[in-house]
Nucleic acid binder design. Structure first.
Length: 246
DNA sequence: GCGACAG
DNA sequence: ATCTTGTCGC
């Protein structure tokens, strides 16, 4: 890999805007060699959801992470950062468009979450390097993906009840799951990103599922960045206020 | 060439 | 993803 591209992979101040698709593909192939899909190594006490919101035809992106307590799933802190991107949305290369902004929000967190769940895929990707895996390898964080639509592979329709799931396979290997998180609602696509196993991602996704289709981490993240974009929340790091009865 | 195609 | 209005259901 050319040195110029290698710097793009390890530099804290990422700038993917000038990359061509062939160069981005090379970076994904390089990062793939550092993937770790072994089982979780420690207990989980916090899990964050990461997402971005943007206005149509605008290069401004509103990124954020919402950290939840686990297994209670109550928001305890959040980080919001306004940034910009010109890298277009290209299926299979979402990471190059969203990671720079999400990384800034992540760096703004004084205490990192035990797991980060992305609105997108982990290894459920043609080159096994979706945004969750890309971010994980880049930062060393434990990550997983939860997409609302299938990006790659084949799968059978899971049963209609909440909790039922099927394998998503590609080229003979299981790369994720189609999970029914709510009765009679379209399934979501779950896959490990980094530092967790396929089974870990499925277990965590189900434990993070409440009364909505989307798991609590990404559901809250989506809600927060949208409120940030419309001006209801300001950029910065905050700890959620709570009314305690003792 | 044709169909698929995260956000 | 975002743009949009109403509508059906818990």
């Amino acid at each position: 890999m050319p040195d110029s591209l290698n710097r793009m992979v390890i530099t804290p101040e990422l700038n993917y805007d000038q990359l061509t698709i062939p160069e981005a593909t090379l970076i994904q192939q390089q990062l793939r060699g550092h993937l770790n899909l072994e089982p979780l190594q420690k207990g989980i006490q916090t899990i964050a959801g990461a997402d971005i919101s943007l206005a149509l035809y605008s290069e401004t992106v509103y990124a954020g992470l919402v950290v939840l307590s686990y297994p209670e799933l109550q928001p305890i802190s959040y980080s919001l950062v306004k940034s910009s991107t010109i890298f277009p949305y290209v299926p299979g290369y979402l990471a190059f468009r969203e990671i720079p902004a999400i990384l800034k929000a992540y760096e703004q967190l004084p205490v990192k979450p035990d797991v980060v769940m992305f609105d997108g895929n982990g290894i459920l990707h043609g080159r096994r390097m979706g945004i969750a895996s890309h971010f994980g390898v880049l930062t060393g964080a434990v990550t997983m993906g939860c997409a609302k639509k299938k990006l790659a592979g084949q799968y059978g329709e899971p049963g209609a009840s909440k909790g039922e799931y099927t394998h998503v396979t590609d080229k003979g290997e299981v790369i994720g799951y189609a999970v029914r998180t709510k009765d009679h609602v379209k399934p979501v696509f779950i896959s490990p990103g980094h530092k967790m196993s396929l089974e870990d991602s499925l277990t965590l996704a189900l434990k993070c599922t409440g009364k909505h289709r989307l798991p609590e981490p990404t559901r809250h993240a989506h809600e927060y960045v949208n409120r940030f974009r419309i001006g209801a929340l300001a950029e910065g790091y905050y700890e959620v206020e709570r009314w305690r009865l003792f």
